[in-house]
Simulated assay, not measured.
Amino acid sequence: MIRLYAGNLPADITEKEFTELFAEFGRVFNYELARDIFSGRCRGFGFIEMEGHEARAAITGLNGRSLRGSSLRVNEERPKARGRGGRR
């Protein structure tokens, strides 16, 4: 199972549209759209879980694809960097 990051999503994308976009390449096991707490609109990114070969096909097929004027960014999720900034 691979977790993908999808960025540069339009603010008005729906969960149905988001999952259908990836379902072209295989079965979507789990998804999560980042939403604004107050407006409920998409914050421009989300995550998808798919099988390995299907996830790689989705990356190839969707990365750079235009969706309502936005060029999508799709790649494997990277772990958060643990930097030196922030509170201690």
Rank of each mutant, 00 (worst) to 15 (best):
A34K: 13
G44E: 08
G26E: 10
R3H: 10
R65M: 09
E76T: 11
P79M: 09
R73F: 11
A11D: 13
A81E: 14
Y31Q: 11
R87D: 12
R27Q: 08
A81P: 03
F29I: 04
V74L: 05
R35L: 15
D12R: 08
E15N: 14
N30P: 01
L72T: 02
A57D: 00
F38N: 14
G40V: 13
T19G: 01
R68T: 15
M1G: 13
E20Y: 06
G52P: 01
K16F: 11
A57Y: 01
R43Y: 04
K80A: 03
R41E: 09
G26I: 02
R27D: 14
A55P: 09
L72D: 08
H53C: 05
M1I: 15
F18G: 07
T14I: 06
L72C: 01
S66N: 07
F38T: 07
L72W: 02
F45T: 13
F45A: 05
A23D: 02
E76F: 08
L33Q: 02
G69N: 08
R35V: 15
R65W: 11
A11T: 06
D36R: 08
V28W: 14
T19L: 03
R82N: 09
I59E: 11
I13D: 12
F38H: 04
K16Q: 15
F47W: 11
G7T: 08
E32N: 05
E76W: 11
G40L: 14
A57F: 01
M1E: 10
E24H: 12
I48H: 00
F38V: 14
N30H: 12
K80H: 00
R41Y: 06
L33I: 10
M50H: 13
F25Q: 05
T60E: 12
F45N: 03
E20A: 12
G44R: 02
I48W: 00
F47P: 03
P79A: 13
L9W: 07
K16A: 12
F47Q: 03
I13H: 07
I37N: 03
L67S: 08
F45W: 04
E20T: 13
A57G: 01
F29S: 09
R84Q: 08
G83M: 01
R65N: 07
I37Y: 00
G61P: 00
N63Y: 10
E54C: 11
H53A: 15
E15Y: 13
N30F: 10
I13F: 05
F38P: 00
E17S: 06
D12L: 06
R3C: 02
G86D: 07
N75W: 03
H53Y: 15
V74K: 00
G46T: 03
M50Q: 10
G26L: 14
E15Q: 13
S70I: 01
E24Q: 11
M50E: 05
G85Q: 14
G44F: 14
G52H: 11
S66L: 15
L21W: 06
I37V: 05
A34V: 11
I59L: 08
F18C: 06
E24V: 03
I2C: 07
S70V: 02
N30S: 12
A55Y: 11
R3G: 00
G64I: 12
S70D: 00
L67K: 11
G40W: 04
